[in-house]
């Protein structure tokens, strides 16, 4: 349903470019959950914004295609993007912080707004009814529609955001860090909700998170991003149980385990690279314990390590 090929989006800052998305390619099938995981600043949130073309004025789409149902979104004019694609076909769930919803509008009104903006001939009353309905779908009481965002708890707000994102029955929903501001129990609830909704409504989900445990819960496939590039991509089990890229490996190891003996916390040494001036060769080489000369000079391509499982590492397919 969605094919992203060699997407390049840079931010123009002063006289240099920040290479936020530097040649990203992946596909998303129908009713599939794709998890995208990576550190802060790796470009995953920029990816979400790029897919919906919600970029600031200094963003430059330099190359690539985003094919959605046969249409290249990169070349699609803004008017059509706004009317046909956004929310109607592809919607997005942000972190349910206080400011993701308009603080002075009732929740129901905000959801209804989405309906009214895309469908002609719907009255305000009807839109409000549908909004209330969808709130029920995400497990919220009808009364929430008349409340203001600040009157809800964090979890309720996140659910409301989800409801709003689903109200037009889009084909793809992008969830950008949907659980980051929530405690673990609510996190689990929200993830379960997302999964059940995806099943019920038959939509595709792109789940973006820096937390690999979150991604691993409900993703069918997983993509690992580092420094603006996808370094590993494949079925969730493969990637998480048999990580081929050193970065993925380190990410998994870094998650503290509740079970088992207490050991010292592992962390990945160093810092993510400066995207306006990335290192030559493999971008991870400065932090990679296995870096070789080749790693330092030549950029690795995504190679198939096993069926459907790709990694961009010179030492992949055998090492580890």
């Amino acid at each position: 349903m969605l094919h992203v090929r060699n997407l390049k989006m840079y931010y123009e800052v002063g006289s240099s470019y920040v290479r936020a998305i530097d040649g990203v390619s992946f596909s998303l099938g129908k009713a599939e959950t794709l998890g995208i995981v990576g550190e802060s600043g790796c470009g995953k949130s920029s990816l979400a914004a790029t897919l919906l073309k919600l970029l600031p004025s200094n963003a430059r789409m330099l190359d690539g295609e985003i094919i959605f149902n046969g249409i290249d979104l990169v070349k699609l004019p803004e008017e059509r993007m706004r009317k046909e694609i956004r929310w109607k076909n592809i919607s997005i769930i942000f972190q349910g912080s206080m400011s993701a919803l308009n603080p002075v509008m009732k929740v129901g009104d905000q959801i209804a707004e989405a309906i009214l903006a895309h469908e002609d001939g719907v009255t305000k009353r009807e839109a409000l009814e549908r909004a209330t309905e969808i709130l029920g779908l995400v497990g919220l009481d009808k009364s929430v529609a008349k409340r203001y965002p600040f009157e809800l708890s964090g979890g309720q707000r996140q659910r409301a955001m989800i409801a709003m994102a689903l109200v037009l029955r889009p084909k793809i929903v992008i969830a950008d860090e949907p659980t980051t501001a929530l405690d673990v129990i609510v996190q689990a609830q929200v993830l379960k909700l997302l999964e059940s909704l995806r099943e019920k409504l038959g939509l595709s989900l792109i789940l973006i998170s820096h937390d690999i445990s979150v991604v691993s819960e409900i993703s069918d496939r997983v993509a690992v991003m580092y420094a603006g590039k996808i370094v590993e991509l494949g079925p969730a089990e493969s990637v998480l149980l048999k990580p081929a890229h050193p970065y993925t490996r380190l990410l998994i190891e870094a998650v503290p385990s509740v079970k088992g003996a207490r050991k010292t916390l592992k962390h990945i040494p160093g810092q993510p690279p400066d995207l306006s001036n990335p290192p030559p060769g493999c971008r991870f080489h400065p932090r990679c314990p296995y870096a070789t000369e080749e790693c330092r000079s030549r950029e690795p391509e995504l190679v198939e390590v096993e069926k459907g499982h790709y990694a961009a590492c010179h030492l992949a397919g055998g090492a580890g």
Binding site: L52, R82, R86, S99, A100, N102, E113, A117
Partner: peptide, 26 residues
Amino acid sequence: GEDYIVTARAKGLDERTIMVKHVLRN
């Protein structure tokens, strides 16, 4: 610059509506 403006834009609202219904009221 607030987040809900990004949400509003993601919802597919046009600039004028955003300005009047969202920004102005705030």
